[in-house]
Lab assay of single mutants.
Amino acid sequence: WLKDDEATHCRQCEKEFSISRRKHHCRNCGHIFCNTCSSNELALPSYPKPVRVCDSCHTL
């Protein structure tokens, strides 16, 4: 799980985070992405409801 202060850019699109481009953790891989690159939800065994995942984890 990557800490918020360790990420300054989206792991996928590499756009810089700002007040309007917020950080979101993928609940599967733990990396930090922008909203555009992590707008999917997936049912994971460790969560009772579908949770936010990055595009890469969603296509696995």
Results as ranks from 00 to 15, higher is better:
residue 1 W to F: 09
residue 1 W to K: 15
residue 1 W to R: 08
residue 1 W to C: 13
residue 2 L to H: 07
residue 2 L to F: 10
residue 2 L to G: 10
residue 3 K to G: 03
residue 3 K to M: 04
residue 3 K to C: 00
residue 3 K to A: 02
residue 3 K to T: 08
residue 3 K to Q: 02
residue 4 D to M: 14
residue 4 D to V: 05
residue 4 D to S: 08
residue 4 D to G: 07
residue 4 D to N: 11
residue 4 D to R: 07
residue 4 D to H: 07
residue 5 D to T: 08
residue 5 D to E: 09
residue 5 D to Q: 01
residue 5 D to F: 06
residue 5 D to R: 03
residue 5 D to N: 12
residue 6 E to W: 04
residue 6 E to F: 06
residue 6 E to V: 06
residue 6 E to S: 08
residue 7 A to V: 09
residue 7 A to L: 07
residue 8 T to S: 11
residue 8 T to I: 13
residue 9 H to P: 01
residue 9 H to A: 14
residue 9 H to C: 00
residue 10 C to N: 01
residue 10 C to L: 01
residue 10 C to P: 01
residue 10 C to H: 02
residue 11 R to G: 14
residue 11 R to S: 14
residue 11 R to E: 13
residue 11 R to M: 15
residue 12 Q to C: 13
residue 12 Q to N: 09
residue 12 Q to V: 07
residue 12 Q to L: 05
residue 13 C to N: 01
residue 13 C to E: 01
residue 13 C to G: 02
residue 13 C to H: 00
residue 13 C to R: 01
residue 13 C to I: 00
residue 14 E to H: 09
residue 14 E to A: 10
residue 14 E to D: 10
residue 14 E to W: 06
residue 14 E to K: 03
residue 14 E to N: 03
residue 14 E to C: 06
residue 14 E to M: 07
residue 15 K to M: 04
residue 15 K to L: 08
residue 15 K to W: 03
residue 16 E to L: 05
residue 16 E to D: 09
residue 16 E to P: 07
residue 16 E to Q: 05
residue 16 E to I: 11
residue 17 F to D: 03
residue 17 F to N: 00
residue 17 F to L: 07
residue 17 F to I: 04
residue 17 F to H: 02
residue 17 F to K: 02
residue 17 F to T: 02
residue 18 S to Y: 03
residue 18 S to L: 04
residue 18 S to C: 12
residue 18 S to F: 05
residue 19 I to R: 10
residue 19 I to M: 12
residue 19 I to F: 09
residue 19 I to C: 00
residue 20 S to I: 12
residue 20 S to P: 10
residue 20 S to T: 13
residue 20 S to H: 09
residue 20 S to V: 11
residue 20 S to D: 14
residue 21 R to I: 07
residue 21 R to A: 11
residue 21 R to D: 00
residue 21 R to P: 03
residue 22 R to H: 00
residue 23 K to F: 05
residue 23 K to W: 06
residue 23 K to E: 08
residue 23 K to T: 07
residue 24 H to V: 08
residue 24 H to W: 06
residue 24 H to Q: 06
residue 24 H to P: 00
residue 24 H to S: 06
residue 24 H to F: 05
residue 25 H to W: 14
residue 25 H to D: 08
residue 25 H to Y: 14
residue 25 H to N: 05
residue 25 H to F: 11
residue 25 H to A: 14
residue 26 C to W: 01
residue 26 C to N: 04
residue 26 C to D: 01
residue 26 C to I: 00
residue 26 C to S: 02
residue 26 C to M: 01
residue 27 R to G: 14
residue 27 R to L: 13
residue 27 R to E: 13
residue 27 R to A: 14
residue 28 N to G: 09
residue 28 N to S: 10
residue 28 N to K: 07
residue 28 N to W: 09
residue 29 C to V: 00
residue 29 C to F: 00
residue 29 C to K: 00
residue 29 C to G: 00
residue 29 C to D: 01
residue 30 G to Y: 03
residue 30 G to A: 04
residue 30 G to V: 01
residue 30 G to N: 00
residue 30 G to S: 03
residue 31 H to F: 12
residue 31 H to I: 09
residue 32 I to K: 14
residue 32 I to D: 10
residue 32 I to H: 06
residue 32 I to L: 11
residue 32 I to Y: 05
residue 32 I to W: 15
residue 32 I to F: 13
residue 33 F to W: 03
residue 33 F to S: 03
residue 33 F to H: 03
residue 33 F to N: 03
residue 33 F to Q: 04
residue 34 C to T: 02
residue 34 C to N: 01
residue 34 C to G: 02
residue 34 C to S: 01
residue 34 C to F: 00
residue 34 C to P: 02
residue 35 N to H: 14
residue 35 N to Y: 13
residue 35 N to F: 10
residue 35 N to M: 14
residue 36 T to S: 15
residue 38 S to R: 09
residue 38 S to Y: 02
residue 38 S to T: 10
residue 38 S to Q: 04
residue 38 S to I: 04
residue 39 S to T: 13
residue 39 S to L: 09
residue 39 S to R: 11
residue 39 S to N: 11
residue 39 S to E: 13
residue 40 N to H: 10
residue 40 N to E: 08
residue 40 N to K: 13
residue 40 N to G: 11
residue 40 N to T: 10
residue 41 E to H: 07
residue 41 E to Y: 09
residue 41 E to T: 09
residue 41 E to C: 09
residue 41 E to A: 08
residue 41 E to P: 04
residue 41 E to M: 09
residue 42 L to V: 13
residue 42 L to I: 15
residue 42 L to K: 11
residue 42 L to E: 11
residue 42 L to W: 11
residue 43 A to F: 04
residue 43 A to V: 12
residue 43 A to G: 09
residue 43 A to T: 11
residue 43 A to M: 12
residue 44 L to W: 04
residue 44 L to M: 10
residue 44 L to G: 08
residue 44 L to R: 03
residue 45 P to E: 10
residue 45 P to K: 13
residue 45 P to M: 10
residue 45 P to V: 09
residue 45 P to R: 12
residue 45 P to D: 11
residue 46 S to P: 13
residue 46 S to H: 12
residue 46 S to L: 14
residue 46 S to D: 15
residue 46 S to G: 15
residue 47 Y to P: 04
residue 47 Y to I: 07
residue 47 Y to N: 12
residue 47 Y to W: 04
residue 47 Y to H: 13
residue 47 Y to S: 10
residue 47 Y to A: 12
residue 48 P to E: 14
residue 48 P to W: 03
residue 48 P to F: 01
residue 49 K to Q: 07
residue 49 K to D: 12
residue 49 K to M: 05
residue 49 K to I: 05
residue 49 K to C: 09
residue 50 P to G: 09
residue 50 P to I: 01
residue 50 P to F: 07
residue 50 P to Y: 07
residue 50 P to T: 07
residue 50 P to R: 08
residue 51 V to C: 00
residue 51 V to E: 05
residue 51 V to A: 11
residue 51 V to Q: 08
residue 53 V to F: 02
residue 53 V to I: 04
residue 54 C to R: 06
residue 54 C to Y: 01
residue 55 D to G: 07
residue 56 S to N: 15
residue 56 S to W: 12
residue 56 S to R: 15
residue 56 S to Y: 14
residue 56 S to Q: 15
residue 57 C to L: 03
residue 57 C to V: 02
residue 57 C to A: 01
residue 57 C to K: 02
residue 57 C to R: 02
residue 57 C to H: 00
residue 57 C to M: 02
residue 57 C to D: 02
residue 58 H to V: 13
residue 58 H to T: 07
residue 58 H to G: 07
residue 58 H to Y: 10
residue 58 H to L: 09
residue 58 H to F: 09
residue 58 H to A: 09
residue 59 T to C: 11
residue 59 T to K: 14
residue 59 T to S: 13
residue 59 T to V: 14
residue 60 L to M: 07
residue 60 L to A: 13
residue 60 L to G: 15
residue 60 L to R: 11
residue 60 L to Q: 14
residue 60 L to W: 04
